[in-house]
Design a protein around this nucleic acid. Sequence first.
RNA 1: GCCGAGAUAGCUCAGUGGUAGAGCACUCCCUUGGUAAGGGAGAGGUCGGGGGUUCAAGUCCCCUUCUUGGCUCCA
Length: 579
Amino acid sequence: MEQINITLPDGSVRQYPKGSSGLDVALSISEGLARNVLAAKVNGQVWDATRPIEEDAQLQLLTWNDTEGKGAFWHSSAHLLAEALEALYPGVKFGIGPNIEQGFYYDVDLGEQTLGETDLATIEQKMAELAKQKSEYSRRAMSKAEAVQYFQEKNDEYKLELLEGLEDGTITFYQQGNFTDLCRGPHIPHTGFIKAIKLLNVAGAYWRGDEKRKQLTRIYGISFPKAGELQEYLKMIEEAKKRDHRKLGRELELFTFSEKVGMGLPLWLPKGTMLRERLEQFMRKAQRRAGYDQVVTPHIGNKELYVTSGHYEKYGADSFQSIKTPNEGEEFFLKPMNCPHHCEIYKAKPRSYKDLPVRLAEFGTVYRYEQSGELHGLTRVRGFTQDDAHIFCRPDQVKDEFKKVIDLVLYTFSALGFENYTAQISLRDPNNKQKYIGKDEQWERAQLDIIEAAQEKGLNTVQVEGEAAFYGPKLDFMVRDALNRSWQLGTIQVDYNLPERFQLEYAGADNQKHRPVMIHRAPFGSMERFVAVLIEHCGGNFPLWLSPDQVAVLPISENMPITPMKCCSCCRSTRSAAR
RNA sequence: GCCGAGAUAGCUCAGUGGUAGAGCACUCCCUUGGUAAGGGAGAGGUCGGGGGUUCAAGUCCCCUUCUUGGCUCCA
């Protein structure tokens, strides 16, 4: 029989009969390994462990310890979910059912039916029952015509739409038990691997992420090869819930919300205010050292201000509506940004190249009409305070200023114990340039300045196209909360646009007028979001210097109130003296 | 904004059509010189708001406000 050479990750090369699968290789190594193999990486591509290998190849066997192994496991779990759904709800139509970072989901169209939490338990049971049957996941190549026919008969318009985007000859079906799905795979060998399943929640999700299209029911779940691991996972979720800033914020009396005041408008309680003011003090001090000047601007601005800035055109209709005065035609807006105000401060007097950079900082409270369904504790609100500043500088100073801001952000993060952040460079979408304002060459230069500054500061960054603000590229610092949701904190943004719109100028060494460049930046991002993430980060146990409760005076007995009272007032006066 | 799930005492929650409940917190009394948890008594709710069905609604139906899990959005 013809032999092929299989190269294993340790570099050793073994010979196997042509058509051997990853699983066969595993079996030849040890039975234990074979029991744990979920998928196989063949020449860098993840395959089914059972798929025959026809020529010489690099092979890596994937188990639960590999991200890709987990991925296949969860993807297969999604198919198992679909099989259970089809058994319980005949006629159900399927959208997509991928694995995600933690688990899997399947988008389904249940017609008129809705699912409650109680239905999830029933589906879980069905899944467990099906898993026990150890049905093999079998792969089958299909012609496009056959595939279309299959889903036409099944009357599943979603799969038919997916098929439209696929080329004939690349289409594969996977079947386990009674369930067949359009799928590129790979999958685990059989359903018996899936020992523990938990369906976590149901949610609506638009078909293909388009809010104009039909909303499907998305069922989220997670599964494990061992029951114990599920228990651990559920325990971890419980622990994370204990750190939820909304719960701790209430318990520690940091902030509250009122239906009467309005949704998304936080009320800071005395203790929360103490915490927030200490953070502000920290930032003020750091910024003073870094050469910033503090300014204060009003909470509203004339409509003309935002027409000039471009925000009116872009967001006017989707924001809080204007404030009118008794005078005909006079309109003001709650400020959604501090930058237009700061531009006017810059313009208050003539500037020389010798004055630059001008760094104007403000804890500026802004109001944005966020969609109601988006509001979330302190992390997504309609009124919040940015630790904002705008740096007006010469084009040749941009990169250097950018690096100084990176220093400030990193100083802030390290002082507050944030180590697990990621930095993202957000670039414009090169295929959709009309979404942005400003000239091509300005964008090119700004993007390059950011990339170089980040590189020279040794930041680990990811670059994402299409994530830039409409006026310029940016560098965002993201932190994950207790529930593993990712939030943007600090941000640094280059802006070649507002200086143009506001006709900002400075006199150069050549005695000509020049256009300054603006850098927007906020190391915390917003006080609200930062406090939220900080609460979750330390589980409410703030560093002493930030804590609203730094000292507790406990009387020996309740009959001894005098001395403790003295202690309290002594602590209070010492503290205020220390400020 | 959309789909799902919710809203009962300050907090966490029980209460499936028949006199509104528990634990913790709170107030008062007793007890207590040692770190949030001793004993007793008490106060506290037009069951988010409005309408409907019913002899009778916290409970069933409709509307609305807010919260929540996602989706879409995020200057």
